[in-house]
Design a protein around this nucleic acid. Structure first.
Lengths: 173, 173
DNA sequence: GAAGATTGAGACGTCAATCTTG
DNA sequence: CAAGATTGACGTCTCAATCTTC
């Protein structure tokens, strides 16, 4: 994880190349590659922090979602919607969590098509520990002041909204 | 790709949950999940734009890098450094590009350990087409003004620098 | 021994197709 | 027929181990 830093910023260097060739959309390119890179850094930092307790970011997010739910249980489909991942990914993540004994699949009484996912006692305990670990590293987000953090979130929210991620136009931050 | 929008912002909703439970690091959490989500959106948009010509974002980035190089050829290792991916990923990407006839592996005369990767004529042609396609969709970055775009890039650059991505402390934007 | 590249494994994401149930 | 979940196939990234070459 601790690979030596480059003596220059590769994204900025690429931007210079684009500029020199008069290619358009140089800034969107820089923004896109920056996002890809930061995502990689965050994922690596969080996964590292959670590795000791056998979790990953993806599985941690699923556990937190269940913690937030009213009765500690949610249909697979709902989980996919909230986590913004495909049904296939939900199946995958729940398979692993269940194998670890952190969640449990239970039938839905009314509609036998849906499968509910419920936190186990172990899962509820572990998510607390995991939260302490990821909070301790600030979710891998470093180098920003409180104001800058708010700005970053706001910019990303605009992109998500413009991409049709959600309908609401209310509050922001 | 065009899945119905949620009636609310799931990231903001999660933030409210964190706030209600007085969990710390609520904003870093929102920033991290926002990054993850936007990365997903960008990747989907770019991959969709490139699907018709049989490319992906990862393979496109590799082709562009070769286009930027002085002699149109680079060692595998150098490619990994610049693209910020593991040697294994370079092998994987080059394998596919070579199978598509877009690049060619050639031996390095001086050091027989290193493998050079060279753009083929087809590769050079295709990267031009590909660039037009991704530029046409602004690399999937939508909803931001020119100023906001600069701000976003700047925030992300701070995170990358703080994470030790590069050493330079010179210019920014 | 160290550097460069590859192979085999595991994790997560997508899509297309299938199976059960409403 | 539509909705919910699963399976199988594929692409990308990671790590550990190996093989060749300096």
């Amino acid at each position: 994880v601790t690979k030596r830093a480059l003596p220059f910023d590769p994204i900025e260097a690429a931007g210079h190349h684009w500029e020199a060739r008069r290619w358009p959309a140089q800034r969107p390119m820089a923004a896109a590659t920056s996002i890809m890179r930061v995502q990689q850094l965050i994922l690596a930092a969080v996964d590292l922090a959670l590795a000791d307790i056998g979790l990953t970011f993806a599985r941690y997010e699923a556990l937190v979602l269940l913690t937030f739910s009213r009765h500690g249980a949610l249909p697979m489909g709902k989980m996919g919607e909230r986590l913004m991942i495909h049904p296939t990914s939900v199946t995958n993540v729940v398979d692993r969590l269940e194998a670890q004994g952190l969640v449990r699949r239970i039938p839905h009484g009314k509609d036998r098509r849906v499968t509910l996912v419920e936190l186990t006692r172990d899962g509820a305990t572990l998510v607390t520990t995991a939260t302490q670990l990821v909070v301790a590293i600030d979710f891998g987000i470093v180098g920003l002041s409180a104001d800058e953090l708010r700005t970053l979130i706001s910019m990303l929210r605009k992109v998500r909204f413009a991409s049709g991620d959600f309908d609401e136009s209310k509050s922001a931050t």
